[in-house]
């Protein structure tokens, strides 16, 4: 148990740096695609250190306790989200018995909490721009709920055939979608992956779904009144969310380990460094998912209107995920309940 607490603290500390470096890689890659040089990869870390020294202004029109409390709640729930998603996986790859199984339904609710905290902070700030941003954020949250629920449920449905617990993340490491599916199942899995990749920029408030933070249109929307340390908390929340949502996609679709794939193990002298290699491999997969889902999409697209976002998610993405679910259910290779 003590070891698990140590692992949890290590995940949080490493999560701060990994999340901020993930944002740095995102900015560098976007700059590369626009044939610019781009900021150093550690730039988000410098930004956080700079914000620590800045003055924190609390507007006189704001509801003080909610305005200052919301970023704290957002950051805390971001950390909990990261721990809940990655603790069982990290324990699995380094060979510890995890106390948390990682419940998929709880994760669906935990994803919402940072956004809800930011929305309440925005309403409390008393700025009309922040109110517009918060309303848009709510529309986006509500319209992405259905695709996420469908993806999670169909993956749980596929696990239900086996002897494992269908709603636990842990059973996904043992019982991956692609191994037990026929042609229909694989096609369905690809559609579900596509739906999740489209949900990722919406949850992260990135172009083309960044209406809540549209900086040229409503002056950064929900974040407009935040400055100094409170803004640093919001940026850290963003980094934790980026890391944990990409990690969730990796675990749902590609939970393979390096040793499992290539049958190799590494050691220096008598110490085995295989767990370290596994964690680097996992972070590598997270970076690839985030680059495809956020960076590439945000560079090649422009911002949509808010009504178009609701249509995209309620019709197109929901349809993609439901077709994926039906294909998985029709797959003859998986036995029917």
């Amino acid at each position: 148990m003590d070891e698990v607490i140590g692992v949890a603290i290590a995940i949080v500390v490493a999560g701060v740096f990994a999340g901020l470096f993930l944002k740095g890689i995102d900015r560098k890659l976007a700059a590369f695609m626009q044939s610019r040089i781009g900021p150093p990869i550690a730039q988000p870390i410098y930004d956080i250190l700079k914000l620590k020294q800045k003055q924190t202004i609390i507007p006189s029109t704001s509801v003080r306790w909610l305005f200052t409390g919301a970023p704290l709640v957002a950051l805390t729930s971001g950390i909990v989200l990261l721990l809940y998603i990655s603790l069982s996986y990290v324990c699995y790859i380094i060979g510890l018995q995890s106390p948390v199984q990682g419940d998929l339904i709880v994760i669906m609710y935990l994803i919402l909490i940072p956004s809800i905290a930011i929305i309440s902070g925005a309403f409390a700030s008393g700025s009309p721009y922040a109110s517009i941003g918060a309303q848009r954020e709510m529309v986006i949250l509500m319209s992405t709920e259905l695709p996420i629920a469908v993806v999670v449920l169909s993956i749980a449905w596929h696990v239900a055939d086996s002897m494992y617990n269908p709603f636990a993340l842990q059973s996904l490491f043992e019982y991956t979608l692609w191994h037990h599916a026929g042609a229909f199942g694989i096609l369905g899995g690809i559609l579900l992956f596509l739906a999740m990749i489209l949900v990722l920029p919406a949850e992260m408030s990135k172009v083309p779904f960044d209406q809540a933070e549209a900086e040229t249109e409503i002056a950064e929307g929900v974040m407009v009144e935040y400055s100094g340390k409170l803004l640093a908390f919001l940026l850290l929340t963003d980094a934790f969310k980026a890391l944990s949502l990409s990690a969730l996609i990796v675990i749902l679709f590609f939970p393979y380990t390096f040793t499992g794939l290539f049958g190799l193990s590494f050691s220096i002298g008598s110490y085995s460094i295989t767990p370290l290699i596994e964690i680097i491999f996992f972070i590598g997969k997270v970076v690839i998912v985030y680059s495809i889902g956020v960076t590439v999409i945000r560079v090649i697209m422009a911002r949509l209107k808010i009504s178009q976002v609701a249509k995209v998610f309620l019709f197109a993405v929901s349809a993609i995920s439901i077709i994926g679910m039906v294909l998985i259910m029709l797959d003859p290779k998986m036995k029917m309940i």
Binding site: I37, P39, P40, Y46, E220
Partner: peptide
């Protein structure tokens, strides 16, 4: 823009005076 690229020094335009230095 790409030719001079001020973002390589970490400089970018922000939308709100609260985020500005």
């Amino acid at each position: 823009m790409p030719r001079y690229d001020a973002e390589r020094f970490g400089i970018k335009l922000v939308g709100s005076p609260r985020h500005a230095d």
